[in-house]
């Protein structure tokens, strides 16, 4: 079992850095039915949005980690980062809508040079802001004051931690990540995050460390609360369990470990019609670092743009986006398997 993290696919000039190659590799796997057929059986074809509630802004692919399952192919060797001008387009779009929640993601969103400015602007609009944080960035010298900054602006921290132990965490995210993550969580707790009554919400996100679906979210949350407090004195508000979608670096790992075919077939077999109404692509719109719009962060990484004339945040028009068809492909089976998976955890 290899444990080394590698540079990004892009830096290695891997064929899998191409979205077209990723989609072709998925299409080559024999499966029983395609995603549109599964949706049709669930009476959800074509898939359309519900009310737009969340704008998810991916502010760039720069990250201080190179996790082996990353669907963004993020890392220290990436340079894509959202400009202040594109952020201003996002702010203008938000000012004219009913959207109340903004979900900041990356890469490590905090490594965008305009991150703090963006958070301040969003909060001044009265919006709820979520920061998808890898935790270790909070322990790097230039960014240690982020803990106090996030608390001051009452940003919800949605932090990645695959396991309550070092073994699984470091295998997925790199040597030493667990120790730094625990240190960051203790500092977040110290300023009031995870307290329950403070209003500073701290959510942990776990992705399986391998070719299987996540366990029961409620059951794992109870165990994690007990174990993180027992082992490290750490408190948090909720645990989200997310499935790994078979794209980008997780796709590379699936292929290399000989698990691609069985994993994709398992996702297809585990299709759960009850997950469809709660899929994040129905109430969330995804903005890329360059301002282009997508149905979700996964479609963004596969460069599957919106089926709409509104392709960029500068031309944002909520009414024009309401009746579009959501673009789907085989990777979508990752969000509908078992209890379902979304940026808010299990769907059912």
């Amino acid at each position: 079992m290899g444990r080394r993290t590698l540079p990004s696919l892009a830096a290695r000039e891997s064929p899998l850095s191409s979205p077209a190659t990723q989609l072709a590799r998925l299409r080559a796997v024999p499966i029983d039915r395609e995603f549109p057929e599964a949706l049709a059986r669930a009476e959800h074809w074509p898939l359309r949005p519900s009310r737009l509630e969340i704008l998810q802004i991916n502010v760039g692919k720069v990250c201080n980690q190179t996790c082996r399952h990353c669907h963004v192919d993020a890392g220290p060797d990436r340079t894509e980062s959202m400009s202040r001008e594109t952020m201003e387009h996002c702010l203008r779009a938000l000012a004219g809508t009913e959207i109340r929640t903004v979900d900041l993601t990356g890469g490590a969103p905090e490594l965008n040079p305009h991150f703090r400015w963006l958070v301040e602007q969003l909060r001044s609009l009265g919006l709820h802001v979520m920061d998808r944080c890898n935790l270790t960035v909070l322990e790097t010298a230039p960014h240690r004051s982020l803990v106090e900054f996030l608390a001051h602006h009452r940003v919800e921290v949605v932090a990645s931690l695959p396991s309550v132990r070092a073994l699984g965490t470091d295998r997925q995210r790199g040597e030493g990540v667990f120790e730094a993550s625990i240190a960051a969580l203790k500092r977040l707790n110290a300023v009031g995050y995870g307290d329950g009554g403070s209003g500073l919400r701290l959510v942990l996100v776990t992705n399986p460390v391998g070719a299987f679906l996540p366990g029961n979210q409620a059951s794992l949350q109870a165990e994690w609360k007990r174990e993180l407090f027992r082992l490290h004195g750490i408190r948090f508000d909720a645990l989200y369990t997310l499935a790994n979608l078979p794209i980008s670096r997780f796709l590379e790992w699936l292929e290399g470990s000989g698990n691609l075919e069985s994993y994709l077939q398992h996702l297809v077999q585990a299709f759960n019609p009850a997950t469809v109404s709660g899929l994040m692509c129905r109430n969330t719109l995804s903005v890329g670092w360059d301002g282009r719009l997508y149905d979700c962060d996964f479609n963004q990484m596969l460069e599957l743009g919106l089926q709409s004339s509104i392709g960029h945040i500068a031309r944002f028009d909520v009414a024009a986006l309401e009746n579009r068809e959501i673009r789907v492909a085989r990777h979508c089976f990752g969000c509908t398997a078992g209890a379902g998976s979304s940026c808010g955890g299990a769907v059912t």
Partner: peptide
């Protein structure tokens, strides 16, 4: 082995 992983157990 598969089921324990799927249910969120780890190797320890």
């Amino acid at each position: 082995s598969k089921e324990a992983l799927q249910q969120g157990a780890d190797l320890d």
